[in-house]
């Protein structure tokens, strides 16, 4: 399917929205305005945006601890996201979830997840429901290279393959599970080879090239939608920032970081759109200004919003209130 000009521009804008949102979060985290920690998506924008734009709006995603980018690309309101990070009642999860559990179910996001690999069996369960309900949608399941060595990955991927479920497994290989490099964590170099073990296709893509990710996910989603079962895609990318707030990045070199920054996924996509005469300097400036204004508005909304009342701690433990809390 040829991407429309409008969609390409939306993808470009979404990549900027993710980056500028994350940069702002990074500032607030380091200043202590946002408590706790967070896992930033800067540098990986092409993967979320390329993959999610290859889906239909009604398709599902399941996300990870590094989930802001997925949520934004899937259509979450960034005002509600920022408010959630500030722990405000107006947040997407009423301030109960925070960064690790950010979700807007109206976008068919099954949720970010604080447990590495924890979302994989859930994504498979959702795909099972889609199959049993004879529905047309698919599930796109994001996880990281670290999750691939969890037992849950093996169990769930095998089950999805055995049952031919409509799910696309997308591994964001950002080269490190916290500080542990993939060289230390795997004997194999090409993680996509794992697909073969489950009898499903396994392909590797340049995760910093939005269109390459888009094409690959589009094909895998089509296969899943047509009853062809799951696929494994390994998207090679890099997180520019540390694993989380406290990460001094002693396990990698400045040279390596610079090398990856030379392969900036946004610059790459921008260049393509300039060559296709969809962007010029003025248009780029306009988009950036609009995105900055949107993020600024989200920050204001978050800051002005009230915190939850103390007794809201008891809300939503159970659907009903018959259980003494």
């Amino acid at each position: 399917m040829e991407l429309s000009e409008a969609k390409k521009l939306k993808m470009y804008r979404d990549m900027w929205r993710i980056r500028q949102f994350e940069r702002k979060v990074d500032q607030f985290i380091s200043r202590g305005d946002i408590t706790g920690t967070t896992h930033l998506y800067i540098g990986e924008e092409a993967t979320a945006v390329g993959a999610i734009n290859a889906l239909k709006d009604e398709d599902y995603i399941s996300s990870t601890h590094r989930g802001h980018g997925h949520a934004i690309a899937k259509g979450s309101d960034i005002k509600e996201m920022m408010a959630e990070l500030f722990g405000k009642r107006t947040g997407a999860c009423k301030g109960k979830g925070g960064s690790l559990h950010i979700i807007d179910t109206s976008t068919n996001n099954l949720g970010a997840n604080g447990i590495v690999g924890g979302g994989i069996p859930i994504a498979v369960g959702a795909a099972l429901a889609l199959k049993m309900q004879n529905r047309d949608e698919v599930v796109l399941n994001f996880f990281g290279d670290g999750a691939m060595n969890q037992g849950a990955f093996h169990e769930a991927t095998n089950l999805a393959a055995a049952w031919n479920l409509p799910v696309v497994f997308l591994c964001e290989n950002n080269q490190y599970g916290m500080s542990t490099s993939i060289e230390k964590a795997f004997k194999i170099k090409d993680l996509a080879k794992r697909g073969e073990a489950y009898g499903i296709p396994g392909v590797r893509v340049d995760g910093n090239k939005a269109l390459e990710v888009y094409d690959t996910v589009l094909e895998a989603a089509k296969k899943a939608r047509n009853g062809g079962g799951p696929s494994l895609i390994v998207s090679e990318t890099y997180r520019w920032k540390g694993h989380s707030k406290s990460d001094a990045k002693v396990y990698r070199t400045k040279e390596e970081e610079e090398e990856w920054k030379q392969r900036d996924p946004i610059a790459d996509f921008e260049q393509i759109l300039i060559e296709q005469n969809l962007l010029d300097e003025d248009k780029i400036k306009e988009i950036k200004n609009e995105v900055d204004a949107e993020v600024k508005e989200a920050v204001e909304f978050a800051k002005e919003s009230p915190y939850p009342d103390k007794d809201e701690i008891f809300d939503d433990v159970y659907v009903d209130r018959e259980v003494e809390l």
């Binding site: 099954l110 069996p121 859930i122 369960g125 429901a129």
Partner: peptide, 17 residues
């Protein structure tokens, strides 16, 4: 695969099963 059984139950329940 007990983790997959439980996870499949969780995931399917989210979509109305």
């Amino acid at each position: 695969s007990e983790a997959a059984i439980a996870g499949a139950a969780v995931g399917a329940s989210l979509l109305g099963m």
